[in-house]
Design a protein around this nucleic acid. Structure first.
Lengths: 190, 190, 190, 190
DNA sequence: TCGTAAACGAGACGGTACGTCTCGTCTTACA
DNA sequence: TGTAAGACGAGACGTACCGTCTCGTTTACGA
């Protein structure tokens, strides 16, 4: 077995934290488009190379910063019935609306850069989809979902509406919207 | 009546067309992120200022180019029943998938630039929503849609799924998907 | 014989005057480097083409404006002796120092544009040289100038000092300087 | 002693030399007016920023290029008598005539840009004046110059004629002219 | 304890595109 | 035909960042 011993000065945890913090701060201040690697480095008191050494692009920095903050994972509710579970899940999820600036920045980058798109899907989006999938699977086992329905489509409906409203910002993403959407899904799967 | 007489040399229709064509060509060749105003100008044989005089950003050029090409408006089908109408509408709409590179470029720009976002919503997205809204309105008049349902939510479900799949590119956007989604909506509104 | 009748609308004297006035005003306000054809046209309420139709460059406009104003030609003094004549000529000439901004702009343009340089030399500089030449010629006839001396060199000395100080702005160009230089020339030609 | 430790990547001497060389080459090829920062950068294989980082304008680049080349400083001759010294100095100086394109470009820029004018005077012109001043000072000590004469005026006479002929290009600047001018100055100071 | 080696900060480098500016030409309608 | 207006192709301007590079310094480890 390889010893995995690394030589030389170890990676600075302090620099890592400063960079992620600077990225989030810069994001708040100038928006995603106005965020630059140069700016992050300056604000973090760090050389640009230290960023490039560990992240391939600013989007990857932001994604890491995002995931670092998102310790508060949305728990998968288990209240015993699809309507209750769905409502709980959606109202919790819709509370993420406050992160809109970060989320749309990440999505924009994913659209412009196919390499980042992969990381974004797999490290961020799919883990969210999995939670909802688990919830639906349980409902299906309880017979609350008609047999012919593809759970993937249901997930797409839920996250489709969420992202569509997040991106367009033309309709509310609040608790009422969560309940309304939960209702619609429940009606559809009968 | 206002005479609307403009002074000076009139805007060159030839230049306008050359710019829009160059934008679409460049889009095909380098993708949205690789498209530059400088490149468009060079390819169109036009000064950069001629572009900046009429469009505030490359996204606005692309949006105009899009709308110019989208002569083939999606007609609002009227087959007498919601399932038939919806299926026709969705299978037609999903054929736009081929435009994915352009559409995701426009969306990315809308996410990064709030000013462009307004133009994108109002000149592009809302006209599509209106067509679907008309179709649903007719179904409601025929009593095919339950009273309590918000048609806006239904529109968000349809376009939510469409855009979510377009952006993530994780699931098909073909005729089968159109039928599946139409089915789901019909089930939900009963 | 050709009738010399010109066809079409005659040249607008009003426009000509407005252009020359605008040029002088712009010169005062932004300096020669900051003066643009576009700015002159706007200020004069005139199309750019009207300027280009009659003058090849901004320097030519300024030169014309200059000559238009310089009606007050420096008279060639005739006081009967070289020292008196020279002192009168130089103190009068040195009063032109106030025109420094215009003069150095014209000179700069002459240095950068050989075509304009010809016009500048012939329409402006040489007419000044001729006046001084006349004065020296008279002195020579009176025997006040030693035989072997080239009057051209003397002219170059006088105008050399004048322009050198005008351009560098490192030493005064006042009445005292005029007298000092006259003295020097008189000493040299004995 | 000051440590003078500079941080970061040190300035590239290679780039500096390439830029100055490209500036001189471009000057020969297109003249001063046709010289552009963009052209210098391209020819030197250098980013534009590397030029702007170290020089505020193209004139400053050219001035540095000039001074870099002018290793062949004009020595101050010391032959024991004013006529001999002056003749030697002037014939040597007048050999600079070959640099006319560069010199008039620098002067033009100095006339258009007061900030550059200061640099041009202090780094270039005044060092030349000082050499001549030294020569005259020695002559004065030997009693070859009449008491009442301002040596500054004499310097202005010499450099005035030199620059006036350089700028106007209406009379020769050769060895004969140098001797002629030396003669004149010697006559004047008796 | 001392060399080796990687990470660090700083910041210069070659590039690319930006959006602006001005040039000199052109194309209208009107006088 | 001359004019004011103003769009046009052209191309340099100076700036902003990109991602890479080269310094001197710092911080671990293993010999």
């Amino acid at each position: 077995m390889t010893s995995e011993r690394r030589q030389g000065r170890p990676r600075s945890e302090e620099a890592r934290r400063a960079i992620l913090a600077a990225a989030m701060d810069g994001l708040q201040e100038h928006g995603y488009a106005g965020l630059t690697i140069e700016g992050i480095a300056a604000r973090a008191g760090v050389g640009k190379q230290t960023i490039y050494r560990w992240w391939p692009s600013k989007a990857d920095v932001v994604l890491d910063a995002m995931l670092d903050l998102a310790e508060t994972e949305i728990a998968v509710p288990d209240e015993g019935s699809l309507p209750a579970d769905l409502t709980a899940f959606l109202t919790a999820t819709f509370r993420q609306r406050g992160r809109r600036p970060v989320l749309i920045g990440l999505m924009a980058q994913a659209l412009l850069d196919p390499v980042f798109a992969v990381a974004f899907r797999e490290r961020f989006l799919f883990s969210r989809r999995a939670a909802l999938g688990e919830l639906l699977e349980r409902a299906k086992a309880r017979g609350e979902i008609a047999a012919g329905l593809d759970p993937e489509l249901l997930i797409d409906v839920v996250y489709g509406v969420l992202w569509y409203r997040l991106l367009l910002d033309h309709a509310p993403l609040d608790e009422a919207a969560g309940r309304q959407l939960a209702d619609l899904v429940v009606r559809a799967v009968r």
